[in-house]
């Protein structure tokens, strides 16, 4: 009764939305294959995309606009906006994705392919 291996969906690139979907200080969670990715726009206008799964115990993180930090509500874990774990239980930084802007589209790609 061991579950069969699910074939890895080979998605390397995904469109997160258009430029206007992301006002400064906003964020959105999208899915790349099986991985949830948090795409956020800092107050200075820069984009950032990180794996949205907390490295502690798997909860989905959120972007705190006021402090520009990433917060995991499950056990009060904090990451900075670059995805580095800064306080609380998370043992590792969040995985990184690349953001490119093409026309007015926000495109997220897996890092090793960039």
């Amino acid at each position: 009764m061991i579950p069969p291996d699910a074939p890895e969906l080979n998605i390397n690139q995904i469109e997160a939305g258009t430029f206007s979907d992301f006002p400064k200080g906003s964020s959105k969670i999208i899915r790349m294959g099986r991985i949830p990715v948090i795409v956020l726009r800092k107050k200075n206008g820069d984009f950032k995309a990180l794996e949205a799964t907390c490295t502690h115990l798997d909860c989905t993180v959120q972007f705190k606009t006021d402090t520009e930090q990433i917060w995991c509500a499950c056990h009060n874990g904090f990451y900075d906006v670059e995805g580095r774990n800064i306080s609380g239980p998370p043992p590792r930084p969040l995985g990184q994705f690349n953001v490119t802007l093409k026309d007015d589209k926000v495109i997220i790609t897996k890092q090793e392919l960039a």
Partner: peptide, 23 residues
């Protein structure tokens, strides 16, 4: 699955002491 974990995520009370220890 595409919504961030809301604040106040907690297990049932009888797992709370373990949960709090982990925290």
């Amino acid at each position: 699955p595409l919504v961030s974990a809301p604040a106040g995520i907690r297990p049932e009370w009888y797992f709370m002491f373990m949960f709090q220890t982990l925290k």
